[in-house]
């Protein structure tokens, strides 16, 4: 019968309207009186009596609740995580970056006993503005020193701010993404919990002791 298809369309849209929105309102969600009361775990009446000021605000539609969508722990994000203690300055990441946006300048290190095996990193610039977050730099890092980050809201006002310098990498709190790091996944680590990982716990293998390094050094000679 004619009109049945049109009627079906009306039914589907009405069902969707009753089910309510599925979108996430980043970064916070406006809730009404009922929503705010539910967030606080009170009944709306309790809420009105106990916190009348907030209740009026909520009834006027100004109460907000933080709303964030849960991200996967493997999310390949913007702020790279770098562990200087693991990095040898081999520049594999720079070599294999498809876009060539990583710049590394190293100098031989005097401070470490195994002089010559570990280098000082003088420059480690990652130009986020051209990065496509493929994660190949992380994939090829033989010492698990470079990790993808999990942030995504690092908008800046100038292009030059998009270049991550070695100092920024040194000072930032490391919450590495578990992308291409199964060893992190095994420990059920979630970077979005905000918990940071020290350099000793992110590698596939233990850092060799100085003695071991000495031995290997001699052996390979």
């Amino acid at each position: 019968m004619i009109g049945l298809g049109l009627l079906n369309g009306l039914i589907v849209t009405m069902k969707a309207a009753i089910r309510g929105p599925v979108t996430v309102q980043y970064p916070d969600r406006r809730v009404g009186l009922l929503g705010a009361a539910r967030e606080l775990g009170m009944s709306p009446f309790q809420f009105l009596v106990k916190r009348p000021k907030d209740a009026v605000k909520a009834a006027a539609g100004f109460a907000t609740v933080e709303d964030k969508i849960a991200q996967g722990p493997r999310f390949r994000g913007q702020d790279f995580n770098w562990y200087e203690d693991r990095c040898t300055g081999c520049a594999s990441c720079a070599k294999f970056c498809p876009l060539g946006i990583i710049e590394i300048v190293t100098s031989p290190s005097d401070t470490l006993k195994s002089q010559g095996e570990v280098y000082n990193i003088d420059v480690f610039d990652i130009d986020i503005g051209r990065c496509m977050f493929c994660g190949i730099c992380v994939e090829v890092c033989p010492y698990d020193a470079l990790h993808m980050g999990s942030g995504f809201e690092l908008g800046t006002y100038e292009r030059k701010d998009l270049v991550i310098s070695v100092d920024a990498l040194r000072t930032k709190k490391n919450t590495p993404s578990t992308w291409f790091r199964p060893q992190l996944e095994e420990t059920a680590y979630n970077p979005h919990s905000g918990e940071s990982r020290p350099w000793t716990e992110v590698g596939r293998h233990e850092q060799p002791t100085d003695e071991e390094l000495n031995e290997r050094w001699v052996d390979e000679r």
Binding site: A16, V22, R30, F62
Partner: peptide
Amino acid sequence: RLLGRFQSRSGPNRWGPYG
């Protein structure tokens, strides 16, 4: 607002009470 609801969105809700 209604179109938003019909489309599983919430519609305008930032400016003023309930948008």
